[in-house]
Nucleic acid binder design. Structure first.
Lengths: 378, 378
DNA sequence: TGATTTAGGTTACGCGCGTTAGTCGGAGGT
DNA sequence: ACCTCCGACTAACGCGCGTAACCTAAATCA
């Protein structure tokens, strides 16, 4: 019989069989045991009176190689009693598949877009995969710490990740180190400036459109726009969307109502002052401001309040980015367009899963919607 | 000679030797090669004309077992040419040490204290260790997702992490799942409500003290305090520190000047209104507000400005937490006391390193200083 | 009744690497 | 001329596990 073989083995390995014999102790005892040398599959096999192979089959529940229900139960019990825990590293080594993805990002440094990680984590968790996060200090592609980024990717590859995610804090073009090409790679919130890596970015244009559409719908026709650095993808897309919305309403974008500023509260304050003071109230002064990010909206609030104007009574304000800490705590709470960080992270993992499975992906560059979040400033 | 042995081996393994023969190609070729089946130490050994053992010795630069300089160089060249990359999993399996720590935290969910992760990451990186981050959705110890937290720890243990970090978003007591006790565990920004796990928490008391000391130093003697929920550790500690500072100046804490509110901007606004309206200006009205968090300070700003008062001219304001997005963008910028998240994360890793090395740690509960950040509101 | 299938396993090999216990040829000592 | 010692390596084993190939007794079939 099978059992006799296993028991014979146990007899020739007194130490192991001794362990198994007294293993039905308390939880604490189990923990102590597990710590000192690690319960292995062999231990489980001996306790259940079967071969290690059988245990392996059961634990990775292979439907084929038929194992009797009774045996499965005995093995499950042994696993419980011994507190067995699979060794992920050994499994990866033997099976040549790690179930790990890696994400390299400076987001660890800049909490702003940490939701990308959250989205990716959650999706990976759902797919029963592990997401290894490697930090990268670099703020721009040619920064002084390029070495750190390379090292991060290298470390991830040493872990034999099956795919790589590369995420940026703000939407821009990046140069990905060459070593990343050794496994499937997907860019998040950025795009490949030289190669053809698939990427996932926010749909800035549509975001800009819905923002302005919302203001038009509220009856505003003179809309001031507080712009970012006009050269970055976010500004280009959002402004184009704004233009589209105006055009659809038969309006044109008045260049005098567009002011660029530093992407800070101070910058927003200054820009808002410029726009508001250019025309007297009621005579061309805009009745709404579209701020291309929430920090600038924060400054705009001050400028508006300083002039004795109310929000949204006199001036409606709409932001962009949905930086919770700002948007949800400004008074009144800021209506804004959200950057879909979580969704981008999740989509990144799904795209990676498709890639590693050899399936085709939807498109080289996938756009994710930026939804409008209604609060109280319009 | 040594070489003849190795070459003999190569001759009996035509596939491998063929690979080695054309391996000095372009970077792209190397990458392709590395991908399809992985360059192993054996490949390196063959190319360098030595045994695998020798390669292993050199790569883990063991000073003892003397290897000639010449051989080391030959091996280094082979590593370069083949694009060899060690397999972390296999190494961990063979050496029984993983060099991995795990951190389980709901911080992934709540970006507020993401700096803990950053600090831990950076320190781990310096120590040449890898930090595995596992998410946990639970907001409080008895939340509905306790199962997820257990699963997270389980997953980390399956990776054979050598130590565990457990971090909370806000300073509080927690109950750590039992399975965490299988490896050294350190709590960050929280403390063990029932056991005796070592923990690292902010020094709230000293933080409260320096805040009030700063206000006293600026000449304020009537200081309003906008309190949090009075029962949480943060409130207790900060208030005690405030009391200490006042006592040192021969003053007492006027209970009428302490108002608790909801820990939001609205709550801060309401509390500030209560305090400011309780006394007429100049006749007992406080000239400074110590807000126990920055969000409440944000609301206090509104209350102050609404009354036509200036900051810091009429009323000085000091916050707590240093939530960058708020503190650095309020106008005027908010002077506040910083929670040392990064430092706590780093100290957590260092403590874990000591623990896993069997060294004693400084104390069961380590306090980390909360530094005062001077901006423009005092 | 002997041949064949099938259920329920088992044996044996290898994944990539760390590590202990050698091996081997030559320099130095007597 | 013999022994010892040392420098520079190598052979061989095992880490925990997945998996292809094989085995055996009972059930089924011709």
């Amino acid at each position: 019989m099978a059992r006799s073989t296993a028991e014979g083995k146990a007899a020739t390995a007194p130490k192991a069989s001794g362990e198994a014999a007294n293993a039905a102790g308390t939880a604490a005892a189990k923990a102590a045991k597990a710590r000192q040398r690690g319960v292995t599959m062999t231990d489980v096999a001996q306790r259940a009176g079967v071969s290690r192979t059988t245990v392996s089959f059961v634990l990775s529940n292979r439907a084929d190689a038929g194992i009797s229900e009774e045996t499965k139960i005995r093995i499950a019990e042994a696993v419980q009693e011994l507190g067995y825990r699979p060794n992920a590293g050994a499994r990866a080594l033997a099976s040549q598949r790690s179930d790990w993805y890696g994400i390299v990002t400076e987001i660890v440094t800049a909490p702003f877009a940490v939701d990308i990680i959250k989205g990716a984590q959650d999706q990976a968790w759902l797919d029963r995969r592990f997401l290894l996060i490697a930090p990268s200090d670099q703020a721009d592609a040619h920064g002084p710490n390029q070495g750190m980024e390379d090292a991060a990717i290298e470390k991830l590859l040493e872990q034999r990740v099956e795919g790589l995610l590369y995420a940026a804090t703000y939407h821009r073009g990046v140069h990905v180190p060459e070593s990343a090409s050794e496994v499937p790679t997907v860019l998040i919130n950025c795009f490949d400036a030289d190669g053809k890596l698939p990427s996932i970015v926010p749909d800035e244009r549509t975001g800009g459109r819905v923002a302005v559409e919302r203001l038009l719908q509220a009856g505003h026709t003179r809309i001031g726009i507080i712009n970012l650095d006009p050269d970055i993808p976010a500004a280009i897309g959002r402004l184009e969307g704004a233009r589209e919305a105006l055009a659809a309403a038969g309006l044109e974008l008045d260049p005098e109502l567009v002011v660029s500023g530093h992407a800070t509260a101070d910058g927003g304050y200054a820009a808002a002052c410029t726009i508001l003071d250019r025309y007297p109230e009621g005579e061309g002064q805009p009745t709404a401001l579209f701020c291309l990010n929430d920090r600038m909206a924060m400054g705009a609030y001050d400028a508006i309040k300083e002039r004795g104007l109310t929000i949204p009574g006199d001036i409606a304000v709409i932001g962009f980015d949905n930086q919770e800490l700002i948007a949800a705590y400004l008074r009144p709470k800021l209506t804004t367009v959200a950057l879909p960080f979580e969704e981008m992270g999740a989509l990144g993992v799904r795209t990676l899963a498709a890639l590693t499975a050899g399936q085709p992906i939807a498109a080289d560059q996938q756009l994710v919607d930026c939804p409008l979040l209604e609060r109280s400033s319009v």
